[in-house]
Design a protein around this nucleic acid. Structure first.
Lengths: 342, 342
DNA sequence: CTGAAAGCGCTTACAG
DNA sequence: CTGAAAGCGCTTACAG
């Protein structure tokens, strides 16, 4: 492969000029630039990232830190971030932040070795909760960082207002006349998720309060954010016909889909007998005709990348918690409450 | 952050010795090695990937090239490859090979710019079909490469035997006494997938042939490998009670799940009235109790990474098409054919 | 077993 | 607008 020397020789200029011309620096004459570009094209020359990084101190590479690989949400965020970074000329290197209790050594190695190699200019951290020591370690690297999904001390963060999102989902069904509304939430013990399950439950309760309904503990079930967990929770909520709700708000779309399938297996029609609303904007939502509050993870990834790129190109860092957009997507899983006619 | 100079000064040795000691070279005395390691630890020193790469010619970084980000299969492969690379001390940089017709410029830029930056030592290419020009471009980079999912000229490739996999799925239901067996396959026009849909259909037909059944064109439907596509195809296959099959073989688990849901909506019981078998090992399979031929994509990613790492550490390249393992996972969606008793 | 020194391929003040 | 030269932070023959 050609080096900058070869291009310089072919174009009849110095390597300094080649570097400037190809970097688009304005201090190169048009004629020279054209000569250099033609030589580079002929030789198929592209500057070595390694050499360029060492000389300039910039790698043009962003580190993406994720606690989970392989799930729909994270894969979507990755996709959005990757697209935006690529369009900005950046590469993306992926880091997996493993679970502290299950893979403590792998997690430690991430901080002590991989992130310390200085392979990247900056980080995007998705749904990552860090210990103080880990946060300090990251901070010591001196790299800009954008967090997605929850506040991180001293870091610009894009976060979803979980309270508002769940409140919107619930208000959608209260506006349809529902009053017996169940909630399938998540475990609120482990706080490795910025208290998202608690915030969503509180949003649900706030919406109930707004129409004068007291939250009923027997209408609350806990799932694990999977279809299976939502299915199990919904079977419990729907099993007793006398206690049966007319609507279910689920803290995730997968749990909502589980609830729809549970209703079907009990012979209940959705939405005639039961309305179901989820939160996420999951890819399966359209097939199941699920009404949901869409948080558009692909856009979240894109936004995180664009925010970081803006910081990197000198725009002043915000150092703030920025709200992520969301919107209600009404499909056929929700309808006017049985017996309520306006 | 500390540099190798700082460590050398603190340990009272030359930078050459620091480099050797931390690289685990055997030509360093134990006493010196300990001094160096202690100094490095104190300063939190980790060699800069950039400087190390430029000096050694090795980046300790692998490029992963994928045509799709965000789907279950690719996310799973990514997860498996990432884990194996990390355990080997390598980083993973992700490249998205966009569709030629939809994003021709992005695709060209991948070859002309991103891959040419020499940021990685080698590539893993997943389900990637390349034009001759693209293959030549990649080859000119002079980097080792492992392909996953189909033969790539001159490249070591790990491939699934699609014919055998579909044949196994079909034999499972013929062995249960089924003879009216439908097949939901994929479009066979665009060959951007190494003819996988055709190979799976042929495997299905071979299994039928083995029990003396002539393939019936009216029992063949085309889906798009989604739940929705499988649902649509199955409704067509199951709609006419007189033509109805007793079993469906789907070329993917998502289509199989669509078929199960279609059967339910028609009042058919799975597996009593209809057996359904898929191919993939999809994460949703266990919830839907789907019998499937599992290709374990996480392991595929791991295998691809391990194969590449072996090449990189000097073991002779195989330059061959290596078969990927798969296994039949029997769950509750398949049963003995109605009316057939052994 | 260890060190001095060259060199990896760029970028960027500095000088003109 | 352009070039000569230093330097980015390592690794690795070479010599001892």
């Amino acid at each position: 492969m050609a080096t900058i020397q070869g291009v310089a020789a072919l174009a009849g200029v110095s390597t300094a000029t080649v570097s400037r011309a190809l970097a688009g620096k304005s201090t190169v004459s048009d004629a020279t630039r054209r000569k250099v570009e033609e030589a580079a094209r002929q030789l198929g020359y592209v500057a070595s990232a390694t050499a360029s990084s060492l000389a300039s101190g910039r790698t043009r590479n962003i580190g993406m830190v994720m606690p989970i690989l392989g799930s729909w949400y994270y894969a979507s965020v990755l996709k959005g971030a990757h697209r935006a970074l690529t369009d900005g000329g950046y590469d993306l290197t992926l880091y997996h932040l493993e679970d502290t209790t299950r893979h403590p050594r792998r997690r430690r190695r991430l901080f002590d070795e991989f992130l310390a190699r200085k392979r990247v200019d900056a980080f995007i951290a998705v749904s990552v909760e860090l210990t103080d020591a880990e946060l300090r370690r990251l901070h010591d690297l001196g790299k800009p960082m954008v967090g997605l999904g929850g506040p991180l001390a001293g870091v610009t963060t894009l976060g979803l207002d979980d309270h508002a999102v769940a409140r919107l989902a619930t208000e959608h069904v209260t506006s349809l006349g529902h009053r017996r509304i169940a909630f399938i939430g998540g475990e609120e013990q482990d706080h490795l998720d910025f208290h998202m399950p608690a915030h969503r439950r509180e949003g649900y309760e706030a919406a109930l309060g707004a129409v004068g309904v007291e939250p009923d503990p027997s209408l609350r079930a806990v799932g694990d954010f999977t279809i299976e967990g939502g299915h199990r929770a919904a079977l419990r909520l729907l099993g007793d016909p006398r206690l049966r709700p007319t609507a279910i708000v689920a803290a995730s779309d997968e749990m909502a889909i589980g609830a729809i399938l549970a209703a079907r297996s009990l012979g209940l029609r959705v939405p005639e007998d039961l309305s179901v609303v989820g939160i996420d904007g999951h890819e399966l939502g359209s097939f199941f005709e699920l009404t949901t509050v869409d948080q558009n993870p692909v856009d979240q990834g894109r936004l995180a990348a664009e925010t970081l790129l803006a910081e990197l190109t000198g725009r002043p860092a915000e150092r703030a918690a920025l709200p992520l957009p969301y919107d209600l997507t009404v499909r056929r899983s929700t309808a006017v409450a049985p017996g309520s006619r306006d």
